[in-house]
Structures are given as C-alpha cells and as structure tokens.
C-alpha cells in the first residue's frame, strides 16, 4: 500500500511563492485561504545575517490528531495515506483546526466566496466554476491535490517549483525520490515532539 508524502529541500527553496500561487489556482482558493504557505525566518546579525524559507503544508500525519477529534467522521485517511475532509459530513465545528499542531486548517467562511479575487464582490467565471467544489462553513486543507494524484500526476505545487524544492512520492517505496532524499540527507519531520508522525519531511 502506498504512503504518499513530500520532502522540502530548504537549501534550494528560494521563497518565490510559485507553489502558493499554483496551489491557489489548482484548488480555486478564495482570497485569504491558503493550503500552503512559505514562511521565512531571519537569523544572525549583520554582516552574518541570513534568511531561510520554510514551506508549510498539511503534513498528512499517520497519527492525525485532526482525524481523532473529528466528531462527525468528516476527516479520514485514504488508502494511500492522504488525509482528506469530506465536506458533505463536515459540520464546521473547527475542532480539527484546534487539534492540528501545524495550524494547517481553514474554515471556508461564506464571506470568502463573496469578495472575489479582486475584493470587488465581482466573481469571475473561473472563480464561479472553482468555488462550486466547496461548501461554505466547512473546514478545508491541502489534500496533496488528490485529483491529480488519482491521475498519476504530482501535486500542483510540486510541478510548479522552479528549484525542485518539493519532492513528492511514496514514502513506503525505498527507491522513490522522497525516500532516498530522507535517507541520504537525514530528513526530519516538523515538530516531532507532537508525535503525529507526519508524512512531510525537511532536509537541508
């Protein structure tokens, strides 16, 4: 059985946010909603100051706290390890958002769909088409572009990254690109102390 996961190469990420734009486009995300963000942190003092870019995304944890607390059974894990939200079952209680240590869940408020991409209240045909997949009031998050994974494609953020800082594949396959990278470059999951067993790793 596959166990899909992702590796972020912090050494090659240049913080261009192309992944963020690709994600918003692929998933028709309304204004203010992100499934992936590229955070930045500065350290050191001049002249030895530096900045590191840290892409973040739902970690599709093996022991997902969001799934454990969901009272309606809306959050579930697919056969390939991708953690999904069934918006037909979601009641919008936000208990999953409170349980996620990575703060990767967003409530799709009805207001999100009214403003439009340009904040004028005018909805473009592209938005109208894309917004139909969401139910206002429910909680959403990254699903590794499951529609693309089902078609044997990589997630939109991965194919868009100009520096190959995002590597996607089956973590159970020892020969897959992410597995090799984790092994060879000592990949580390985010916040391992939370014991959620993420399927997203970081290498330097």
């Amino acid at each position: 059985m596959a166990r899909m996961g992702m590796v972020f190469d912090l050494k090659t990420c240049i913080g261009c946010n192309a992944c963020v734009v690709a994600c918003k486009q692929e998933n028709s995300l309304p204004d203010g909603v992100f499934f992936t963000k590229t955070l930045s942190e500065e350290y050191g003092v001049f002249p030895l100051a530096n900045r590191v870019y840290i892409p973040t995304i739902c970690n599709h944890c093996d022991d997902a706290p969001c799934e454990k607390v969901c009272p309606s059974g809306a959050t579930y894990t697919r056969h390939d390890g991708i953690v999904m939200v069934d918006d037909a079952k979601c009641i919008g209680c936000s208990s999953c958002a409170v349980a996620c240590p990575y703060d990767q869940r967003t409530t799709m408020d009805a207001d999100n769909f009214l403003k439009g991409l340009f904040g004028t209240g005018e909805i473009t045909p592209f938005e109208k088409e894309g917004y139909a997949r969401y139910t206002p009031g429910t909680v959403t998050k990254c699903d590794f572009c499951s529609q693309r994974v089902d078609a044997n494609l990589d997630p939109a953020c991965v194919v868009t990254c100009p520096t190959n800082a995002r590597i996607f594949g089956d973590l159970d396959d020892p020969h897959s690109a992410p597995s090799k990278m984790i092994r060879e470059r000592n990949g580390r999951p985010p916040m391992p102390e939370k014991n959620t067993r993420p399927k997203v790793y970081y290498v330097n």
Partner: peptide
C-alpha cells in the same frame, strides 16, 4: 452559542456520530 459558531448548523446532529474517538460526540 454552539450553533452560532458552527459553520454548517443544519448538520450539527452529525456531531454525535463518533463517541469512540471524539470528546465532542461523547459530550453531546
């Protein structure tokens, strides 16, 4: 107050479906 917070109040009955793992279900 719960219904004013809830995103989809009409489906609030679903909150009782997972008492095996969720304290919200047990509480309801």
């Amino acid at each position: 107050f719960h219904l004013t917070h809830m995103g989809v109040p009409m489906k609030s009955w679903r909150a009782m479906l997972r008492p095996d793992r969720s304290w919200i279900s047990r509480g309801l």
